[in-house]
Write a protein that binds this DNA or RNA. Structure first.
Lengths: 418, 418
DNA sequence: AACACTTATTTCAAGTGTTAATTTAACGTG
DNA sequence: CACGTTAAATTAACACTTGAAATAAGTGTT
């Protein structure tokens, strides 16, 4: 129940340094004076913090701007090239590894097919190979990589050791961190891929500036990433956000999770296609990808008929599901993403919004805007790469890996008597 | 997006003082040495903080305990009589005002009937009168009251000014804080009554020690109080937790909110009784309170028949609703409270839990225990009274009202040249 | 070209806080 | 009654923020 953590004088500086860095990262460039105004820190402190950051290379000057007759502002910004970060997407069909600079500009990428399923050792091996490959391609030393973010599907439990439960991969309590640790010294940040995409959308997509939002991800299955107070909510064992398996119709359709009436059984791409086939008593053509089939369904629905009915019902269910999120979380924004979400949303967003309005209470609904995601469906690796960046910003730029060989807890000053 | 707040050296002390105080409040008594171990603070800091707290009277010694041969531990605890707090419950039928000491021992109480509805001015007047009355009864000076917590039904928006939207009272954007401010100088903490009860249950009831929990409140209507990271989650405009109006059956029963398929339309006491009458094609007897009627229904169901069926269905819906909370929030505990919740739960908890297991994913369900509330249905005033206590603990015991006449921002030292 | 004016940044003393080491206090034991 | 042990208080060293004063770097004016 103890709410705060004890803190020391050094935490103070770390915290204030972090405040300045976040400000510069998201709303940079800015002058020292502007930073002082925006952060509430005194001019002196901002000067101190900034001079540390400049000395370590994290922040650089970026020209200057005239003031109203006085000394001009010196603009400061985060040095995007200071270090790099790596994002990994362990997907259904392949492992993607991408290298970014701090501003999330892609520097190199590589991807490996996963033809023979998700054998853990094989995946681990591909990740490690990918890390080496992207560094080599971009000519970046591993010493200059802040860390590696890894997005996997399934529940990622952050205990004493990070453990992955991935039903879709057939992974059961896989100690992914330990396995990777054998092959690399880089800091690792493992998380659920949907949560990673949600964070990407919050940082660089439709969620910018929001502190409370839900990013809804609709693909073949359905998930959500819940952002409260500006950061991803995980719950007690990191499995929060299983929106796809919330019940919206007690006693309704059977879901692949075994329960009845799950939202996923109505609005997941697989379920939508199934429902369409049932409605027209047809059979789904083999060999057509879900993406193509759903796109075709949307086209067919333009001419009304069964297809339109199925999609209308889908919009109703999706709206009800979104309304539940609005009623429970009272967010500023709901962002609809995932490949199927973007596809459905591009045509149905007004209907979905109307259904949400019908099912949500007026007051919270009025506070929420429902929007489409802006980053496309392939932002998992990028989202994963934000994890080391987040860590870097939060520690106030102190976690520079070149400092890693220093003595822990004594980093900084040495007291030589000579 | 800036995550932390800037902080000064003084915030440091306030924070560490708060850490010590919370520890003592919830797990006291303890010795300085023990505090140092539990909080991670150095012995010196704990000594400093404690000596301040003792000097101001917030903390007192509570005997001593032998050590293994050396100087004995001096036990410390929060001085329950240091100040008092007031909790107000603006309920459907009456305004309850209760005075507590810091350990939440009831010192005095008074209650006023609200026969003629919820006229704002009348309610405000009763609250102010109640404050004076309980202070007089217990012989406590208003100067020794830390603050007043007020629980009202409806959405309480915490903006520049606290505004209450209470549909059930017919209140629309009532500036309750401003109205009360005209009659008292005491610090006011206004919040939703369900959230207050949830906090009471977390502090002193079935939620002790949990950091992530949901307190579900079933009365005539249905609500929930969501606790994340140890504190009540409010969302962007404080209306989070409207669990009663989440959809569990798209296209289902009409709810009094206007939508269809709300959980409240199945498991709220009013709805349960309605469903029973419909099932047996009877009419509800006039003049019998909902409480009595529901208790009778539970008794009738012991002999099976329609009553048992209706209650079985109720358990299924309630279980599904709880499963939704488990899937979305991944809490450590779900606490079922409210008068109808306690009544239903006392007989149906196993069935409800089974239904939740069926509708929730295995992994998060295994992490959650579902329990009945322990404080009874009348803990709103007490919960409201925790609000000033929470503020007091969080500010590290600095907000002593006797200091209120000091110069703001300069409290503490005076620099006299004499 | 010199000067006044304006505004941004740096410098510095003052005040506070934490830590780690040291000292003092309180107790049981032989 | 000295001695060892453990708890609490004290102290010295150091770090950090603040706010005021000083300095730097421009513009506009005469």
């Amino acid at each position: 129940m103890v709410p705060h953590q004890r803190s020391t004088v050094r935490d103070l500086r770390r915290g204030n340094s972090a405040v300045v860095l976040w400000q510069l990262y998201f709303d940079g460039p800015a002058s020292r004076q502007e930073l002082s105004r925006l952060t509430g820190l005194s001019a002196g402190t901002v000067g101190n913090v900034v001079s540390d950051l400049i000395a370590s290379g994290v922040v650089i000057t970026a020209g200057s701007m005239d003031s109203d007759g006085g000394r001009p502002h010196v603009l400061l910004r985060v040095n995007a090239g200071y270090r790099s970060v790596i994002g990994v997407d362990v997907g259904e069909t392949c492992v993607r590894v991408e290298l970014f600079d701090l501003a999330m500009t892609l520097l190199a990428k590589v991807s490996y097919e996963l033809a023979d399923g998700h054998d853990v050792e094989f995946v681990v091996d591909r990740i490690l190979a990918g890390i080496k490959a992207v560094c080599a391609e971009a000519g970046v030393s591993e010493r200059d990589v802040l860390g590696v973010g890894i997005g996997v599907s399934g529940v990622v439990e952050h205990g004493a050791e990070v453990v992955v439960h991935g039903q879709t991969f057939g992974w059961d309590a896989v100690p992914l961190e330990r396995l990777l640790r054998a092959g690399t010294d880089l800091p690792l940040h493992i998380d659920n891929g949907a949560k990673n995409m949600g964070q990407a959308e919050m940082w660089f997509g439709a969620g910018r500036g929001c502190r409370h939002a839900v990013v809804v991800l609709i693909g073949s299955g359905v998930g959500a990433s819940i952002i409260t107070h500006g950061s991803t909510y995980r719950g007690v064992t990191s499995s929060a956000g299983e929106w796809g398996h919330t019940t919206v119709h007690v006693g309704g359709r059977r879901c692949r999770c075994g329960a009845r009436g799950c939202l996923e059984a109505y609005v997941g791409a697989e379920a939508v296609l199934e429902r369409y086939q049932e409605a027209r008593r047809g059979r789904r053509r083999r060999g057509v990808s879900e993406e193509a089939a759903l796109a075709e369904l949307l086209d067919t629905a333009e001419r009304g008929g069964v297809a339109a009915e199925v999609l209308g019902e889908t919009a109703t269910y999706l709206g009800a599901g979104i309304a539940n999120l609005i009623n429970l979380f009272n967010p500023e924004r709901i962002i609809v993403g995932g490949w199927a979400g973007l596809l459905l949303g591009s045509r149905l967003l007004p209907k979905i919004t109307a259904a949400a309005a019908e099912h949500a209470l007026d007051h919270p609904f009025a506070q929420t805007s429902i929007e489409l995601g802006r980053l496309g469906p392939d932002a998992v690796a990028m989202g994963a790469a934000t994890l080391p960046v987040e860590h870097f910003l939060t520690t106030g730029g102190a976690s520079a890996p070149s400092d890693r060989d220093r003595i822990p807890h004594r980093a900084g000053k040495r007291h030589d008597s000579a």
